[in-house]
């Protein structure tokens, strides 16, 4: 689908973002086997934006993460990068995983995506996207980057996450390469 890879046009009076993004939604069928094919089929493109104004125009109409049903995910990725391990940009990558107790996810997700859109991570081209996952007992947010082996980058993403999420002490953070995730 062409829409997935093309940035929308912006008007001159809008505030351009460093990157254009696509927002995806997925819902897992609990109990069903999750093959790569079914994962791909479950990904629905919600919208795209290239400016701050276009972002708010989309975001304001979305259901807040805390109001989503269990087993749903939002994936916010740079245009041209599909939120899948198999995408070229993700193949050597990994993700920071932050597990949140119930009640925190909407605020944390908003802080995370505002930091991503505003280029607050300061890791060059390394960020691929972010995911929020609504689960039964906890919620999870992840930040995906391109090069899992780049310790300077992954440390900087971790430190930025700690700062922008205002995580309670003891909140667990874990880095996983996509290769490890594939094996599990």
């Amino acid at each position: 689908d062409k829409d997935e890879v093309v940035a929308p046009e912006i008007n001159p009076n809008e505030h351009k973002l460093q990157y254009a993004y696509a927002l995806w939604y997925s819902r897992r069928n609990p109990g069903k086997q999750n093959s790569i094919q079914s994962y791909d089929r479950n990904l629905k493109l919600v919208g795209r934006f290239a400016s701050v104004e276009q972002f708010w125009g989309l975001y304001s109409h979305l259901t807040r993460p805390s109001e989503l049903t269990t087993h749903t995910d939002f994936h916010l990725f740079k245009i041209g990068i599909k939120p899948m391990w198999e995408d070229e940009a993700n193949q050597r990558g990994g993700k920071w995983i932050v597990r949140l107790r119930k009640g925190l996810v909407s605020r944390c997700w908003e802080n995370l995506i505002l930091a991503m859109l505003g280029e607050q991570f300061m890791v060059g081209e390394e960020i691929c996207g972010a995911v929020v996952s609504i689960r039964f007992q906890e919620d999870i947010i992840c930040v995906w980057n391109k090069t899992a082996s780049d310790l300077g980058t992954t440390n900087r993403i971790r430190d930025t996450l700690r700062r922008i999420l205002h995580l309670p002490s003891g909140a667990s953070m874990e880095y996983k390469t996509h290769n490890e995730s594939l094996k599990n």
Binding site: N11, N13, E14, H15, K16, L17, Q18, V52, E53, W56, G57, S60, N111, L114, A115, L117, G118, E119, Q120, I164
Partner: peptide, 21 residues
Amino acid sequence: GTRIVYERAFLMNLRNSPISQ
């Protein structure tokens, strides 16, 4: 070129601008 950096407060201020609706 220069990286386009926006602080959280700046982004929040644009939330209610007419072209964000």
